[in-house]
């Protein structure tokens, strides 16, 4: 069986190489990177708004940030960093042809994403219970800087959360592709692109974490 396969491979080797040369992985990654810049600047716009309001309302921001659960925030950072590691490892495993390991690592990454979202849910429901949600009378009665802090918090963290969900969905698709053999050790650019997206989500959180949880 295996020898028959290898002879067949030898026969089609030439067109296969041609096709491989025609496929331009750098092109695919370049497209992905450019897309990531758009994402980066999407958040960049929010960071600009954040910097202006924080500059205008320094004490209010500090007071409002005391409401945040620093432990959960730190835990989430660790979870996301770990998922980034497993995603990088999943790609590496695929490069080395270890399909099983790669599948395991991709599942682990998705689970990390899920854990992150669960923590977020706990945090948000806690804030909602305290009345710190947009449109609530309690929040509306606070100083303007604190209203803005929570406005930015919900917008930025919420948008980031949506990105985590999107990233999880993308990796889930990659998982299916890997299982079905569409992602292979010599054609894994899709998985790489998914990884790039996931790492970007991680990088954005790296900035969100100190800016919302650790204001002194």
């Amino acid at each position: 069986m295996s020898s028959a396969e290898s002879t067949q491979a030898a026969v089609i080797a030439e067109p296969h190489i041609e096709e491989h040369a025609h496929r331009d992985d750098v092109r695919s990654r370049m497209g992905m990177w450019l897309f990531l810049f758009s994402e980066l600047l999407l958040f960049g716009g929010l960071f600009l708004m954040y910097s202006v309001y924080r500059y205008m309302h320094q004490t209010d921001f500090s007071i409002a940030s005391k409401e945040m659960n620093t432990f959960l925030g730190t835990l989430n950072t660790v979870i996301l960093l770990t998922s980034s590691l497993t995603m990088a490892l999943a790609i590496n495993a695929m490069q080395r042809g270890k399909k099983g390991l790669s599948i395991f690592l991709q599942i682990f990454t998705i689970l990390c994403g899920a854990a992150f979202m669960v923590n977020k849910f706990i945090e948000w429901s806690h804030e909602f219970a305290k009345g710190n949600y947009p449109g609530s009378a309690i929040l509306a009665s606070k100083p303007k800087g604190q209203i803005l802090y929570f406005g930015l918090y919900y917008s930025m963290v919420g948008l980031h959360g949506i990105h985590v969900l999107v990233g999880m969905t993308i990796i889930a698709f990659m998982l299916v592709f890997t299982i079905r053999g569409k992602i292979t050790p010599d054609n894994y650019v899709k998985l790489e692109a998914a990884g790039l997206y996931w790492h970007l989500v991680d990088i954005i959180w790296i900035f969100l974490f100190p800016l919302f949880y650790l204001i002194t």
Binding site: D25, T74, V78, L81, T82, L85, N92, L214
Partner: peptide, 28 residues
């Protein structure tokens, strides 16, 4: 550079991860 292989070792990734976790702790 079209077909550059990314031959990073698992170990390097784990080291980077450890550094990231340490830095997170440091920020906190």
């Amino acid at each position: 550079k079209e077909h550059t292989e990314h031959s990073h070792s698992y170990g390097l990734y784990v080291m980077v991860w450890l550094a990231l976790i340490t830095l997170t702790g440091l920020t906190a």
